[in-house]
Design a protein around this nucleic acid. Sequence first.
DNA 1: ATTATCTATAGATCTATAGATAATGC
DNA 2: ATTATCTATAGATCTATAGATAATGC
Lengths: 217, 217
Amino acid sequence: MSAVSEQGAVPANRLDRRKARTRQALVDAAVRLIAEGRGQQASIQEITDAADIGFGSFYNHFESKEQLFQTASGEVLDRWAKMIDGACTDRRDPAEVFAVSLRISGRLAWAHPEIAGFITGAGLELVDAPSGLAPHALRDIRAGQAAGRFTVPDAEIALSAVAGGLLGLLRLHQRHPGRVTESSVDDLAEACLRLLGLRAAEARRIAQLPLPRAGSS
Amino acid sequence: MSAVSEQGAVPANRLDRRKARTRQALVDAAVRLIAEGRGQQASIQEITDAADIGFGSFYNHFESKEQLFQTASGEVLDRWAKMIDGACTDRRDPAEVFAVSLRISGRLAWAHPEIAGFITGAGLELVDAPSGLAPHALRDIRAGQAAGRFTVPDAEIALSAVAGGLLGLLRLHQRHPGRVTESSVDDLAEACLRLLGLRAAEARRIAQLPLPRAGSS
DNA sequence: ATTATCTATAGATCTATAGATAATGC
DNA sequence: ATTATCTATAGATCTATAGATAATGC
C-alpha cells in the first residue's frame, strides 16, 4: 500500500501522481457535468469520456456515480468556503460578514466560473448540504439575530431566500452575461440585508463597503 | 377518432372516461414522484406501478417520460395559478397582489399538500418554467417597479430570491411540520416585501392584510 | 366491431468486473 | 515485480413495441 498523501500534498512518486491525475480528471469532469445541469443523469461512460480516461479506470477511484458526485461537490464547496473565509477574516459585525460572503459569492461568476457553474447546476439542494456553506451561513444569520441586528424570525427560511437570490443572479449571468455586473451583486446583497431586517440606509452602506483584494487562489 | 373533449369537460362515453382515468392516474403518479424528489429518475415501470396500470398503457397516453412530466407540471402549475388568481381579484396595488400571492402559496403546505410537495420537488427550476407562475409573478414585480413601489433593480433576481424563500418554507414544513405556521408565511411575505424595497412598517402592514376566504377548489 | 389495457419480449443501454496491456518501482 | 489503466463483455436494467385479452359501442 502506498503512503496516503496528505490533503493537497503532491504524491511522492510518479505512479501516485499519475493516479492522482486520473482521479482529478474524474472529479473535474463531474463538476463540469453538474454545471451543465446533467449531474447524476450522465452515464459512467459519459463521465469517463469527458475525463478522457478508460471506462474501467472509474472503478479504481470510486465505487459508484453517487460517490464521485459527492466527492466532487465536497471539493467545490471547500474551495468556495475558503474563498469566503479568506475575505471575512477580522470582521466582527455579522451583517458585514454576511454581506461580504454574499458579494464574494456573486463575484464567482467572473472570478471562478467553474464554481459558479457548479452552484447553479446544484441548485437549492446546496442549502441542505450538511457539509459546506449552509451551516456556516446559518451561523452568520443566527449570530445577527442574537446581536439584534437581524429581525427576520426564521434563519433557515431567510437563508433559503438568500440562496435563491444568489442562484438567480448566477443563472442570469450565464444566460445574459451583459445584464449582470458587480454592482448587481451589491444590489442583491443590499436587498438581502433588508430582507434580514436592516434599515434601508444601513443595508445600502454595508453592501457598499470596500471588499478585500481577491484572495489566495 | 373520438371527439377531443374540452379541457375539464367529462368525456361523453364510458370508454373515453376510462381512458381519461388512466391518463389521470399517470399524471397523479408523476406528481407524487416529483414530490418524492425522484422525478425524471423513476423508470416507466415504477411510474406505471405507482399509477397501478399496466406497463404498456403508458404509451397509449405519452410518448416519453419527459412528455408525461411536462404535462404533469403544467397541470399543477395551472391549479396553483388558479388559486392565486382567485384570491387576487380586485386588488390594484402590485405590492398587495404580490403579498397575497405569496401568502396563498405558502398556505398550500396545509391547504394542498400535493401541490406543495410538487413545488418543493421541482425546486428553483420553477422560476424558469415559461408557462406557469414565473411570468405572472415577474409581471407583478415589474408593475411594482413601474409604480415606484418596489425599488429593487432586477425583477428576475428578486423573483428568484422570493421563490427560494417559499421553497425554504415549504421544505421546512415537510421536515418539521411544527416549526412552520401561517404566521411564518406572513413573516416571509413581510421579509420579501422589504427585499423588494418597501419600508419596514409598510411591509408589515401589507403582509397582515386579511386574506379572502379559501377559494374555488 | 372497435378501442384501451395488459403481458411478454426484443433490442438498446448501462453497470460492474475480468483479463490484457502499459507504465513505473526497485 | 508491481500497480494503474484500458478493452471487452456478462448480466442487469430499461424502453418501446407486438400481440393477446378485456371492456365498451352500436
